[in-house]
Design a protein around this nucleic acid. Sequence first.
DNA 1: ACAAGTCCATGAGATTTCTCATATTAAAAT
DNA 2: ATTTTAATATGAGAAATCTCATGGACTTGT
Lengths: 239, 239
Amino acid sequence: MTKEKTGETGAGSRNILADFCAHFGFDITPWISEVRFEGGEEILCEGERPDFLYYLTEGRAKHYISREDGQVSLLTFLYAPCFIGEMELLGARRTADGVTALTPCRGYAIRAHDCREKLLSDAKFLRELCMSLSDRAVRNTEIYSRNQSCPLRARLADFILAASPNGIYRERHTEVSEFLGVSYRHLLYVLADFVKRGMLEKQPSGYYIRDEAALRAAAKGADLQGPPAEKGHRKSKIS
Amino acid sequence: MTKEKTGETGAGSRNILADFCAHFGFDITPWISEVRFEGGEEILCEGERPDFLYYLTEGRAKHYISREDGQVSLLTFLYAPCFIGEMELLGARRTADGVTALTPCRGYAIRAHDCREKLLSDAKFLRELCMSLSDRAVRNTEIYSRNQSCPLRARLADFILAASPNGIYRERHTEVSEFLGVSYRHLLYVLADFVKRGMLEKQPSGYYIRDEAALRAAAKGADLQGPPAEKGHRKSKIS
DNA sequence: ACAAGTCCATGAGATTTCTCATATTAAAAT
DNA sequence: ATTTTAATATGAGAAATCTCATGGACTTGT
């Protein structure tokens, strides 16, 4: 929480800048400028054609889309360092999905229109892009498959463990229910059940993890009705 | 259904080969060989490190993963033309997901080990790869969000419309239930309901679409209990 | 021809998850 | 200070979906 200087000439900034430039095979500096977003600020506006390719060096954002019927799906959380708006640059899509900063974010904005050709012929940059697209695909795929294959109970237990660095869980239920793709009501049900079973304890400051082992068991779907381990054959099984 | 010659020197083959070579900025031919897979044959073996990067010119395959508990999630269908095994080439992942041919497939196998460096410095190839990764990401994202935001009824109606070019639906229920991420039993329930409502008619040769309009309505979630349009507020809504 | 495996099909009952309604509280706006 | 808005909570009932069981039809291997 040390308050940083906002100037762009500090040693720290230079290192960050150097790291960023290392993603390109040519000198990108003529086309970039530093950017900041406040928590809650929109980075890509859903449905519009973005003017910049962004690279976040700091912060966390959420990536979502709205469906015609008005429902919003939170697709992923984006963690710095990462590119934002790559697909739009490539022309793989005309208009952007929505991306909104969750925490204050810093990074660079690249005037992609003006150096599109250079970017698209730079093997170094393209390689990085492929890597990051792949990584994200792998991550999304895991989440996707997990969401389909197990009930909220397991996913939530997992999420709580991942989101509680100090054994204290204090995410917003509204956000989490979106992310996990279930109704707010249902999230609260399961959460209340965890509390009732003594796995969590509710405090004004957040939910305290009281029985981590039980949470881990729940994350594996191994809790409830004892551990008959090899049982049930939901959907197809390995032969 | 004209029976093609299996020789590799026909004019058709040469065009296909030329199209394929156009994805690279250098001469790829020294590193490739033609391949075929029968329907049901494994293209990438789940958990193993693949020796080749494949490019399918013909056919359809399925991409899936098995979870620890033995459940199998069908992630996507892969349609030619497409690469298979790109992420493994890039090193974005160590071991492959499973990919199995659904129909007889033809294509090329690239000995990626031997030309990895060339591939990874070829801007043309990398650009194509980025595009295809992006496209797939967009597609997956749509499916993912749709799966979460609407019940099977709508997704199935959609799927039937998409999978019935002549108004006749005859996919395997087992495959479809995997793809749509629901139990076989539930798929049958909804299908039976469509029949009961006269939207489909069951014939020995398949299900005939009898009321396409109703199916389209169902795909939009607009059927059942009339069209009160703006109702319900599942998850969050646009403000 | 027969056994084994796979797909199709249907029923019964349980679990998960949703919608809707309604308070309470906390933060933001005026 | 007061109104408005967003987040937290909880209850009741319904819809979606799952598991398990069971049987018939059709393929395929022997």
